[in-house]
Nucleic acid binder design. Sequence first.
DNA 1: CCTTGACTTAGAGCATGCTCGAACCCCTAG
DNA 2: CTAGGGGTTCGAGCATGCTCTAAGTCAAGG
Lengths: 141, 141
Amino acid sequence: MKIGELAKRSGLSAHTIRYYERIGLLPVADRDAGGRRDYDADILVWIAFLHRLKTTGMPIRDMRRYADLRAKGDHTAPARQQLLRAHRENVRAHIADLQAALLVLDTKIDTYVAAEKRTQNHDDRDARNPAGARTARLGRD
Amino acid sequence: MKIGELAKRSGLSAHTIRYYERIGLLPVADRDAGGRRDYDADILVWIAFLHRLKTTGMPIRDMRRYADLRAKGDHTAPARQQLLRAHRENVRAHIADLQAALLVLDTKIDTYVAAEKRTQNHDDRDARNPAGARTARLGRD
DNA sequence: CCTTGACTTAGAGCATGCTCGAACCCCTAG
DNA sequence: CTAGGGGTTCGAGCATGCTCTAAGTCAAGG
């Protein structure tokens, strides 16, 4: 498979694929007779895994470390495992953080909904004071 | 409160506080007699909220939009609510993504653990073939 | 044979979000 | 009154992760 097809299949651009090779995330590709990169289909599995790591916030330097270990052979398995364990903990912590934020957002949205209702009632019964003090809290945050 | 103290209390650096003011995330601060920024304590609440938005992945341009709406007064409340709803959905989606990734990581880590055990047994019973084919899969990803 | 289009390289440029340096000002305590 | 430790502005610089340009090579179809 040439770089253009790999780009289509992996979702990366050809530019990005070359970039990833340059920085050591992808193995140096084999070349065909004309000197073009020629990929084996299983590179897609590795790219998908890299994508997972990326979307879960692993910086490229850590992905490189993992890739380097992988390239060094089986005896680096414990180190790779350790890397993944550390990353898993980061992801866990991140999820916890996001869940806490979700509560805050929900509360805040509820506040807006409640204020909306108050304004509604207010307008219904007292249209002469549409910017009344009872809704002034909305401007605070 | 002067900028140095706000920096300590908010966790932002004074540099960052000025930067946030410049780009419109923080309101233009009042000045004291000597022309220095003088803050009211409740700016901390706003900064904490910004921090939430930031750690949940909202780009600065969206935070600015929210800040701008806030500055325009109560009638922008529906727009702000809408912004937060959209953000909440992003956060939800992000959480789902991370949870899926967590499963992948757990599976992968388990694979390493299992391979380790196999190597262990193998070494115990057949120390002449420590790099045997049964663990070669480890180099694949 | 010649055009077309995908490929090659090195290196510049961009978007985001800070982070820092330089040069200067001003208040307070010793 | 003078040194120190804030503060001020403007603008450059940095880290990350791409993204694109320029100039050129190469293979295949009309």
